[in-house]
């Protein structure tokens, strides 16, 4: 840059790009060295410690009963999250509806299901058969009592559920997880809806859209940007909490199956390692799903498509996408 500064240089005389010596970061290199040594020690332990019995893990981690366990765990996660999210949306709308009764009911629900531990809920639902052996699902509540008073045989029952066949195992576990999830999702959805600018409601209202249309078409899609990341968290937590249904008891669930292999062969530790690996794999798939969901709901935020979801700390660096 030998030229003298000239305020009105014609185009083409752009000064040379700056090529300066970057600042050195010796601390970073020291940290890398320390971490490299620690990582090497860890890998060395994994390989050399006989207790891991890698061949035993490989032989047993993919048995049919364990693959069946994976299936049950995934199904439980998916269904309980679907029910939980729908329930959460309904509860959040009730809370924000302005109707004091609906709001109080939603609050009460959230209070109860957040207070009781999932483990306790799972066991409780597994024992629901004690309350009633049969559940009558009818059109008219209290129809038997009313009929008794009137002296006629009124039966409003549409169909009957046998608690001992319906509310056992999978269904009981699913209900326990889904109802509890609904309470947490309600708070997440509520936060999402509150994050949407009130001007959006007004604009939709001024256009003549109904409250239902405004909620479904305008508010919820925008709330999703706030709702999806914590919901990803919830889904991962749910995947792991499915191991609680072993207490319902649901025995064809992943962790129970892995543990039972370990117990039967008196080789518990390798199967615990196998459990870690299985849950790592499943969680990684969930992260990929979350990446695409976030990308979808961040549309219109003014960030180029490829980069959008990468902004969130997902562990995917700058939005590469692979797990």
């Amino acid at each position: 840059m030998s030229e003298t500064p000239d305020a009105v240089t014609p185009e083409g005389t752009r000064p040379e790009a700056i090529r300066a010596v970057p600042v050195r970061h010796p601390g970073r290199w020291a940290a890398v060295a320390v971490l490299a040594v620690l990582a090497a020690m860890f890998v060395h332990m994994l390989v050399t410690n006989k207790a891991f019995q890698w061949s035993f893990i490989i032989d047993n981690a993919f048995r049919p009963n364990i693959v069946e366990g994976v299936r049950t765990t995934v199904l439980l996660t998916v269904f309980s999250m679907i029910i939980g999210v729908v329930l959460g949306i309904v509860l959040a709308i009730m809370r924000l509806s302005g109707n004091p009764i609906l709001g109080a009911v939603a609050w009460l629900y959230t209070w109860f299901f957040r207070a009781v531990p999932r483990l306790v809920l799972a066991i409780l639902f597994g024992n629901m058969g004690i309350l009633y052996a049969k559940y009558h699902v009818g059109g008219v509540p209290f129809s038997h009592q009313v009929g008794g008073v009137l002296g006629v045989d009124m039966d409003g029952t549409l169909f009957t559920i046998n608690a001992n066949t319906f509310l056992t195992g999978f269904m009981a576990g699913l209900l326990a997880l889904a109802l509890s999830e609904g309470a947490y999702m309600a708070e997440i959805v509520r936060a999402g809806m509150l994050s949407v600018d009130p001007g959006q409601n007004e604009a939709a209202g001024a256009l003549g859209m109904s409250r239902m249309q405004t909620m479904r078409r305008i508010v919820l899609p925008q709330a999703m940007r706030v709702i999806v990341p914590p919901t990803g968290n919830e889904t991962i937590a749910m995947l792991k909490d499915t191991s609680l249904v072993a207490f319902v008891p649901v025995t064809n669930e992943l962790f129970f199956q892995l543990k039972s292999v370990g117990d039967k062969s008196f080789n518990a530790f390798p199967m615990l390692v196998a459990s870690c690996i299985w849950y790592l794999i499943l969680t990684s798939f969930l992260l990929v799903g979350q990446y695409f969901l976030e990308r979808h709901f961040s549309r219109g935020t003014g960030v180029p498509k490829e980069k959008r979801a990468g902004l969130r700390a997902l562990g995917f660096g700058s939005g590469g996408g692979g797990a």
């Binding site: 600018d197 001007g199 959006q200 007004e202 604009a203 939709a204 209202g205 001024a206 256009l207 003549g208 859209m209 249309q213 078409r217 305008i218 899609p221 925008q222 709901f297 549309r299 219109g300 935020t301």
Partner: peptide, 30 residues
Amino acid sequence: RREIGMVFQRFNLFPHKTAMENVCEAPLRV
């Protein structure tokens, strides 16, 4: 309200919809 159009100080466009979708929304739904 359908007889009355309103324009706001802060625009209040629907940020998750394109210009076209913003204009189409009410005619389609309402």
